[in-house]
Design a protein around this nucleic acid. Sequence first.
DNA 1: TAAACTGAGGTTTTT
DNA 2: CCTCAGTTTA
Length: 782
Amino acid sequence: MHDYLKELNDNQREAASHMEGPLMIVAGAGSGKTKVLTTRIAHLLKQGVDAFNILALTFTNKAAAEMKERIEKILGNSEARNLYIGTFHSVFARILRAEAHKIGYPNSFTIYDSDDAKSLLKTIIKDNNLDDKLYKPQYIYGRISAAKNNLMGPIEYLQDKSIAQEDARSGRPLTGQLYAQYAARCFKNGAMDFDDLLFKMYELLVKHPDVLAKYQHKFRFVLIDEYQDTNIAQYQIIKMLAAVHENICVVGDDAQSIYSFRGATIENILKFQKDYEGAKVIKLEQNYRSTQNILNVANKVIGLNKNQIQKNLWTQNDTGEKLKLVRTLTDNDEGRFVADAIMEQKLRYHYNNKDFAILYRTNAQSRSFEESLRRLNIPYRIFGGLSFYQRKEIKDFIAYLRVIANPQDEEALKRIINYPVRGIGKTSIERIIIIANETDKTFWEVLQTPHLAGLKGAAAAAIDNFVLMMKSFQALMKTKDAYEVAFEVGKHTNLVKELYNDKSVEGLARYENVQELLNAIKEYTETPDEEGELTDKSLGTYLQNITLLTDADKDGDENQDVVKLMTIHAAKGLEFPCVFAVGLEENIFPSAMSLYDRDDLEEERRLFYVVITRAKHKLWISFANSRYRFGSLVQNEPSRFVDEVPPEYMDKSFAGLAGARTGAIARNTSAQQQQRSFTPKEKTEKVYVRPGSKAEETTTAREAAIQKVKAQVNTHIPSANFTASDPEDMEAGMKVEHQKFGIGTIMKMDGGAHNRIATIQFPNGGGEKKIMLAYAKLMIIK
DNA sequence: TAAACTGAGGTTTTT
DNA sequence: CCTCAGTTTA
C-alpha cells in the first residue's frame, strides 16, 4: 500500500494525522474535505484504533457510503465495515432500537415520515374540532419540529411564555395542546418521527446515565461532517457523547450553512473553540475543484455576507471560461436552452451526460427541463421529489408490514383494515376508536374482542378473520426474514392479486411497483450487512431503514450516464464538470419567503455560493422573464444575485434583451410547433429515468409505454359526428367510441334491462373498463 | 359502493 | 396547471 498521507497538502495532512483532542477543520468548498475525513479515519485505524470505537456522522446516507468505500480503498481491507458510520438519524435509530425499552418504546418502533406525521396531526386537529384551514397540519408540524430540534418537549412548550404569545398572536393558541396530544399519540402508537430520533436520543442519554456511559466509552473517536448544519439537538447529543474522551473532530464550512430552516444553527461552528478549550483549528483553503473564474465569483458573492469566518479560498487551476449568463422569455425556453446547450457541449467537447447537472431552487422547477431533455432524447434522472416509498400502493403494502412489526401503529392499522375490502366498514371502525379511547386501550387490543365493542354478526366475523390473519403473519415474523414475511403478506391479503387484476394503465404501474418493492426487500435480506451489530434481517430493522432512505440515496450508481437534476440543497457535497444554475429570479431564488429578513437572505446567498462552487469547469446562470406558476403566467425580476456576479467574469452574450437573436429566443416559435407535433420515439431504451421508478431499463421502457398510452388517453378527441347511440342496440363484439377513452371493443354485457353494464377493452385508452350504459355516452361504430 | 364531479389550494429547501 | 379531498350521483 502506498503512503496515503503523501497525497495530501500540508494542512490536509496535519488534519488527517491528528490523533487525540478536539479538532475543527474549516474546509472551504472543494478543498478536499471528504478526502481528509476519510484519510483521518483510515489513519486512526492504521494507528491501532479499533473500528468499533469510531463514530462518524454525516447528513446523507450517500456521504456515509462514500466515506466507507473510500476508507476501504485506502486500507485495502474491509475493516471499515465495523465503523459506526451513518447519518445522525440512522445511527440514532439504531441505538434507540437497541435501547428502546428503556424509554418505553417497543424495539421495533415505527418511524413516521413527514407524511405520516402530518396525517396523524390532521386527525388530531379534527378530533379537537379545530379548523384545519387555520391549524394547518403543515404549520403545526413545523412548530413541533422546531420545538424538538431545540430539545423542547410538550411540557416545556406549554410552559414557555414567549412561545405561548407567538402562538396566540398567530391565532393558534392551542398549538401546545396539539403538540402534547401528538406526542402522546405517537408514544401510544409506538412511533417516532424524524425529529424524535434526535429528541428521544437526547432523552435517553439524559435519563439513563448508564446508557450514556456505555456509548461515551464505546465511541473513543467522534467525527462530524457538515458541522455547520447541526441543530441544537444534534449539538447537545454530540457534546454528551464526546464528553469523556473529547476526541471530537468536526468538519464544516460556515459559508455552506443552508439548513437553518431545519433548526441548524451556524453558532455551533462559531463557538466550537469556546466549547473545547485548546481545540486545534485547521483551515483548508486551497480549492482543487473549480477554475479561477468560478472561484473568484464565489468568493466575491460570499464576501457580501456579514456573518462569516474569514477565509481565503484560492486555486492553482486554470482560469477557465467566463460564466455564461442566459436570459430567456419563458421557463420553457429556459428548458430548451439548457437541453440545446448540453447537446452542443456534448458534440463539441465530448462531454458525457453525467458531466452535467441542472440545479434549481425548488423541486417544482424540474418540469421544463424534463420536457426539453426528453425531446432531445437526452437521458436524465431527477433526484429528490416524490420518493418510491411515498407512492400509495407502496405505502399500503408497507402499512401491512408496519402493523405486523408493531401492532400499536394505529395509523397503519386504519389504513389497511379494510383494504382490500373485507367488510369492515366505517361504522365498525368508528366504534372501535370510541371504545379504544374510552377504555384507554390501543386500537389493536380492542380488535381482539370485537363483541365487546358491540359488534356482532358479519362485522365481528370479518374482524376476527383479519386479526387471525395478522397474527399468523406476526408468528411468521419470529422465524422468517423480512422478505419471506412480505411475500406471504402479498399472497394472503390479495393485495398483489387485486393490483394484478386491475388492467388499467395505472393499475399496471402499481402492480409493477409492488413487485419492485418485493424485489427490494429480497435484495435487502440477501445483502450481507455491513454493520457491526444488530445485523438482523428482520422486518423491524428493514422498516426502520427504508423510512430513512431518501431518493438520492437509492441506486447510488454514480456511473449511470445521465444528466442530473436536483435542488441545490441536494447537490451539496457534489461536484460536476458543467453546472446550470437555473431560475435565478427574484421570488424564486432568493425565495419569496426570505426577502424580508437579513439572516434568511444571507442563507439564500450561501445557497448561491453552494451552487457556484459545484461547478468544476463551466457554469451557466439562467433566468426567464416569465414563467408559469399555478397555471398562470407570472413575471419575475432577475435575481439580485445576478448583479452580484462581477461583470468581468461573466459572458452576457446570451442575455440580450427580449427579441434579440439569442439561440433560445430565436428558436422560440419553431420549437413550439415541434412540441405540438412531438410523439415519443418507439425505441425508448434507456432514455429517461423518472425518480422512484428504479433505474431499470425494463421499467423505463414500460414507463415510456405507459406515458405514451396516457398521452393518447388525454388527447383523444371525439369524432366530429359523435352522437350517443342507444344502449339498447349494443351487444358484445361491437366496436364503440367513448369520448375520452377512444375506440374500444365490447367484451361482454351484464346487468338488467335498465342497468346494462358493458365491459369494454380500449386498446389506446387505458385497457379494460366497466361502463354503465345508462350514464356513459357511447357511439356504435359501423 | 365506486366512479365521477367539484372546488380549493399548492411551491422553499430535507433527515 | 395539477392533485387531492370531499361530495355527489344514479
